[in-house]
Amino acid sequence: MPIDDYVPEGAIATKLDAALGWARKYSIFQYPFVTACCGMEFMSTAASHYDLDRFGAGFPRFSPRQADCLMVVGTISHKIAPVLRRIYDQMAEPKWVVAFGVCTCTGGFYNNYATVQGIDTIVPVDLYIPGCPPRPEMVLQGLVMLQEKIQKQRSRAKAS
């Protein structure tokens, strides 16, 4: 049966962004930049009880070249900040950044000489998940919100 019976003419072209977004949002390859306490909660979320895999984001890639979602999990100090920035620069487009935990969002209660006051001062952030550390349910909700954001994103080729 020809496809034209179902979709109007030209629909494939206009829906390309939607199709790309759909494909991307269910195959998030995350790079866990795990530094601190939030890593324990990230571990819980990724393991079998909460199971990040249900949302297509279960497989961590430990190479920034292969990842498209940088999960910054835990406090970022000034000493590690250049490393984070470098890893962000190494990731290929399209890429998203998740600030996991309140330390990465604002610095949390670590307002001191050693801690970066929010990673948005060094890399752009797509999604903030506050909490110290956020509970796994909250992480999952954040992931769903990220998926919505990815779905709505227009492709770079078209925008340029």
Binding site: T35, C37, G74, I80, N112, T115
Partner: peptide, 28 residues
Amino acid sequence: GYLHRAFEKHAEAETWNNVVPWTDRLNY
């Protein structure tokens, strides 16, 4: 030293019981 978060400096600025939340994050 990549996760130096100044626990000892913060503890000097907090009341006796307020230090307890900081100790959570030592060995998390």
